[in-house]
Design a protein around this nucleic acid. Structure first.
Lengths: 107, 107
DNA sequence: CTAGGGCGTTAGTCATGACTTACCGTAAGT
DNA sequence: ACTTACGGTAAGTCATGACTAACGCCCTAG
């Protein structure tokens, strides 16, 4: 259900960049914005979306706010991927069996 | 590189629906459009995007065009997910070691 | 060879969302 | 208490993309 949030969150290139940077270690917003081609408020907005998708968590650190990766979001996506994959595999097997039965009826 | 295409392709709800339907078995465009809340041309456009992302393949069948799931696209996403996950794990381990060293210097 | 079903494409419309600038709250440091 | 760094929020702009209607092409059936 929430996989929709996670997938659309990671669809944006800037958010993927933010996410990959956080994978290399926790960072405050300011440092995160340095080196990115967008302004700091833009980064804040992206972080808000990533947080809502369960992809990052934040904790206050004095006047800063440190963000880091949240494993739950990745889990959502992986679960959805696996489910689609299983359905596809089952459908493929069913098709093969159906074909085999047909071939047996008319040799 | 192409994981960008696959991720942004699956960000759209209608395309996810199309993709999940195809997981249940190959379908021509017309049947795919039936039961979807959008017009047939819209489905065609979505299929074009899914195909460019390596998520589906198509083959001509008389006057129809049958679409089915392409495993490559899912592989792209999974590979990217795994990579980000590995980076995060390494960073976490490095942080733990750094902490341990600091603790040893000042008991 | 003609008729018609099945799809892809184009043009145009409308909504969504990514971005910046300006502003305000909050938590330290002097 | 004053100031300054840090970050979230609001308002407004602009581009992207999802959709429909209309058109044209190919393939098969008769």
């Amino acid at each position: 259900m929430t996989n929709a949030l996670a997938l659309s969150a990671l669809a944006d290139p800037t958010r993927r960049e933010v996410f990959e940077r956080l994978a290399r270690g926790p960072l405050p917003v300011g440092e995160l914005a340095l080196g990115l081609p967008v302004s700091r408020p833009a980064v804040s907005q992206h972080l808000k979306i990533l947080k809502a998708a369960g992809l990052v968590t934040d904790r206050p650190d004095g006047t800063r706010r440190v963000y880091q990766i949240d494993p739950r979001g990745l889990g959502q996506i992986r679960a959805w991927l696996d489910q689609v994959w299983d359905v596809a595999l089952d459908a493929f097997r069913a098709e093969v069996e159906r074909q085999a039965e047909q071939d047996q009826e008319q040799p």
